[in-house]
C-alpha cells in the first residue's frame, strides 16, 4: 500500500487571550494587531494532532501548509515540533489581505503542487475570522470531497470514518480518499510541546513559496483575488454606560435580586 500522505493547513493568529488589543484604524480601515503574540489557531492545533496521530498509527508523513506574514514562521516551527515532518510556508506580499476565497485558492494550489495528499486536515474554524469557509473551499478548488465539523475520526481499510456535527445531531460518515476534513475541538487533546521534539524540529525543512511558485497571478491572490471587500467602517455611537451599584456584597446582591423581581413582576417575564 502506498504510504499515507497527510497535509495540515495551519493559520497563525493573534493569541485570543489578547484580542482586546486588536483594533481597527477607522481612517485606513486596516486591522492593527502588532505586538500581540501569535499562536497556531487553536482548532488547527487539533487538526495537526489528528494528522500526527493518524501518521503514528498508520505510517506516512505529515506536511504543514501555512500562509501568513513572516511572523508565522515561528508557528510553523512549533508545528514541526508537534509532529509534522516538513512544512510549506506561503509567504509573499501578494498573499496579503486575502479573504477565505483567495486563501483557499492559494492553499489549494500549494496542495496540488505537493501532489495532492490523500488526507487534508483543517480546523473547523480559524480564530479571529471564524468563518469556517476555508476548509470546504479548498476541497472545491481541489475537486475532492470533504467532511466539515468532525469530532471523531477513524481510518481503516483505506477508508475514513468521521463523526460530524450536523444541524439535527451527529452523522457517522464514510469516505474514500482523497478527502479533506475540518475538525472540532472534541476530536482530541493536542499534545504539549516537548523540548526534544523542538530541537529535532530545527532540522526539518520549511519550503518557502511565493505566488510565482504557485503559478497564480496576483489578481487571483490576496486582496485583489478576494471575493469580498471591506469598503467602510461605521463606528457605533458610544454606549450610555451602566449605572454602577454601590455598597457591600450583601446589599448589592439584595439590590440585584430586587431589580430582577420587580422586572419579573412587571409581567414581562
Amino acid at each position: 500500500m502506498k504510504s499515507l500522505k497527510i497535509a495540515v493547513c495551519l493559520k497563525s493568529v493573534p493569541d485570543p487571550k489578547q484580542w482586546h488589543k486588536v483594533t481597527i484604524n477607522p481612517q485606513t480601515k486596516t486591522i492593527q494587531k502588532e505586538g500581540i503574540p501569535r499562536i497556531i489557531s487553536p482548532l488547527d492545533r487539533h487538526a495537526l494532532e489528528a494528522a500526527v496521530r493518524l501518521k503514528e498509527a498508520h505510517g506516512g508523513s505529515v506536511i504543514v501548509v501555512c500562509m501568513g506574514s513572516p511572523g508565522a514562521r515561528e508557528n510553523i516551527q512549533e508545528a514541526l515540533a508537534l509532529g509534522a515532518d516538513e512544512a510549506v510556508f506561503l509567504s509573499d506580499r501578494a498573499f496579503g489581505g486575502a479573504d477565505s476565497l483567495a486563501t483557499a485558492r492559494a492553499l489549494a494550489a500549494a496542495l496540488k503542487k505537493l501532489g495532492l495528499p490523500g488526507l487534508i486536515f483543517c480546523g473547523a474554524v480559524s480564530y479571529y475570522g471564524s468563518t469556517g469557509q476555508v476548509g470546504p473551499q479548498i476541497a472545491q478548488f481541489l475537486g475532492i470531497n470533504h467532511f466539515s465539523a468532525v469530532r471523531f475520526l477513524d481510518y481503516k481499510g483505506g477508508k475514513l470514518y468521521a463523526e460530524i456535527v450536523t444541524d439535527g445531531g451527529f452523522a457517522l460518515c464514510e469516505g474514500k480518499l482523497p478527502l479533506l476534513v475540518t475538525v472540532r475541538r472534541e476530536i482530541n487533546k493536542p499534545r504539549g510541546l516537548r523540548l526534544s521534539e523542538a530541537i529535532k524540529a530545527r532540522k526539518k525543512k520549511i519550503w518557502t513559496w511565493s505566488s510565482a511558485d504557485l503559478g497564480l497571478s496576483s489578481d487571483q491572490l490576496g486582496l485583489k483575488g478576494s471575493g469580498i471587500q471591506m469598503f467602510d467602517f461605521l463606528p457605533l455611537p458610544e454606549a450610555q454606560g451602566a449605572e454602577i451599584l454601590e455598597g457591600g456584597p450583601q446589599e448589592i446582591a439584595k439590590e440585584i435580586a430586587q431589580k430582577i423581581k420587580k422586572y419579573r413582576q412587571g409581567g414581562i417575564l
Binding site: Q77, E78, L193, L195, A201
Partner: peptide, 19 residues
C-alpha cells in the same frame, strides 16, 4: 537564539496551560 525562544515557548506553554 530562535532555538532558545522555542524552549521558552515550550516552558511557557506548560506554565500557562497546565501549571
Amino acid at each position: 537564539s530562535e532555538d532558545q525562544e522555542m524552549l521558552r515557548k515550550a516552558a511557557r506553554e506548560f506554565a500557562s496551560d497546565v501549571l
